[in-house]
Design a protein around this nucleic acid. Sequence first.
DNA 1: ACTATGCCGAGAATA
DNA 2: TCGGCATAGT
Length: 794
Amino acid sequence: MFPEVAAESPLLQSLNPEQRAAVTLPNEHALILAGAGSGKTRVLTTRIAWLLATGQIGPGNVMAVTFTNKAAKEMMTRLAAMLPVNVRGMWIGTFHGLCNRFLRAHYKLANLPQSFQILDTQDQLSAIKRLMKQNNVDEERFPAKETQWYIAGLKEEGLRPNAVDVRTEEDRRKVEIYQLYEEQCQREGVVDFAELMLRSYEVLRDNDPIREHYQRRFHHILIDEFQDTNKLQYAWIKMFAGAQNSVLAVGDDDQSIYAFRGARVGNMSDFVSEFSVRHQIKLEQNYRSYSNILDSANELIAHNKTRLGKNLRTDQGAGEPVRIYEAPTDMAEAQWMVEEVRNLVRDDNRRNEIAILYRSNAQSRVVETALFNAAVPYRVYGGLRFFERAEIKHALAYLRLLENPSDDTSFLRVVNFPARGIGARSIEQLQDAARTAGSSLHDAVAQTTGKAGANLAAFVAKVEAMRKETEGLTLREIIEVMLQQSGLIDHYRAERDGADRIENLEELVNAAESFVTQEGFGRDAVALPVDELGKTVLRQSPASQGLDPSLPEVNEPAPDYVPPDAETGETLSPLAAFLTHAALESGDNQAQAGQDAVQLMTVHAAKGLEFDCVFVSGLEEGLFPSERSLADYGGLEEERRLMYVAITRARKRLYLSHSQTRLLHGQTRYNVRSRFFDELPEHALKWLTPKNQSFGGSAFGFGMGYPTSRSGNSSATGYGRGSSETFASPPVPPQKSEPAHGLKAGMKVFHTKFGEGTVLTLEGSGQDARAHINFPRHGAKWLALSVAKLTPVT
DNA sequence: ACTATGCCGAGAATA
DNA sequence: TCGGCATAGT
């Protein structure tokens, strides 16, 4: 519309040529390969801003999809900073958030109640357990967790029970459970996360006018983290792609680390072929890390065979070398990290800017202990989130019952909490009654008799009284009344450690309050978008765009806003909207946010984050890469990508460490240094402990003893003032001068008495070293290596 | 209704 | 080895 303006738009300033090309792409399908730290979010938001500012589209013509609420929020914040536009009214959100919005708008077509509630993972599991009990499914043969995984997996493949390929009797039974589960959810008016996606996909697929409406409406569809999309999400995106609009997929195949939960990197290449993508742009300029770090990342990931191909570069200098440390034990490794952290903090690094990463959550323990003992503040990511806490779930269950009495999951959660004399027996009877009547538990209460029936009736009466009492109240007041009437507050007040829980319940009131005000729920004012030239971008009427006026309007207020039913004018209550919000945004999962603390998290959790200093610990064969990954196809490459993600989190300093021994499942495990060390460029590395050649693959020596020559600590470029790099004491405690026995798991050995056998495992060190060896004629035996006379068999 | 005990499992996790 | 969960026992 204003090409001259577009070309010199201030929005485009300070973008590099690739970024600029991406931002100003024509309205055609395109794939952006965005390397780590290449300004991906910036490109996405600037693209939207540019489209708006140049008048090519209005705010209603964009749909931008992310995976996490955090990413969606960041996009909205940045966009709002660039343009005075009402970002809340735009279709920017997570896949599930947008599906929710879509389903509320088309609830009739979706065959759902307008105020359907959303089951989170916990709710879903308990719903499945309940269903399996009622249908006498053997939980030994069909564990509830597995069934849950199975159902979610099928839904993410887009498969309904009738479409599942049944081959075995077991399949048949599992599909039967799936079918029953679906019926139960439908009856109770609830949907799980996968259902949000699948149901909206089906509505789009089966209703041509609806699909075409959205295709006309969204001129531009932008997808973030495209490499993480699963089959269903990809199919869902396809529904929105029409003749006139375009899909901009942004992703990084090298950062695809979620195959285990259904992500298909292959969607990227499928997208290119199926959408006949003509524009592919690589963002390879990295603005985050020094080149030693980037070189390491590049060289490592080059070992992967299946990749689209990309190489990060930076204008920054080499920076610090990547430091590598080998510890004798996991405790020593943790101790070393604590020391380094202290040095870093002393040298004016903020603790917030230091991250300790590990492959599996179990590894956090030993690190936490070390930090705790050293009184270094730290913060662990990935605990329970706010809306997942038990007391909050209880409160939400009461609220859900107010909204929907036939929500059996919620009913069961609180029918006897706080305890009111309704035991397992009464509940069983009630469930039987409900089943024969084909009704909800709530409705079945009327049919129960005796003292159990009286208690149940009292509960139902209580909830109904609450519903009456809260009628017409504000959300805040509703919650306050509920907290009192339900007895939750009293219950926790009486409990020893109930103070925290009460505090959380009070926080729930605050959360509701800020939901009402911040989200603007219930308000209808929509700020008119203004472009950067100061002209008002007129609100486009649906009719003028060839849109169906009866369908949702182009500009809508809050993200949780639900358009009223076209016929009845019915819309969601603030309470129902808040419950949806609670399910879709489970809140912060970081303890003590805001404090200046060292950040502890898994590598997965670190994706998308960056820190000045990063420690990647436990780099050992079997751990990272994990043992289990080696079994499945492409597993090692995904581990390598995970390592790539870990490395690219660091801006200035990167530390990689591993330990010879590690306490795992109560056993000391001997671990060999991760193969990933051998895939890094030597010039970028600095071995703080000697690089023991025997580690990466040679047959003998699995970690006992060291070569006599020490190297690697000559050029102390570090951070002066007696840092740990001046080895006052050797970081590795001297091992017993025990000759390395040279055994490895899997090796064949000969014993004078037992004959030939195979080494199964090795344990202990020095004098205590033992081996579990399987002798075909005598069975498996534990042998003390200092005593047993073993000779390797070649 | 609450506590004690035994068993199992143990990878990463968004919405 | 540890911890979460389900069941048994008082």
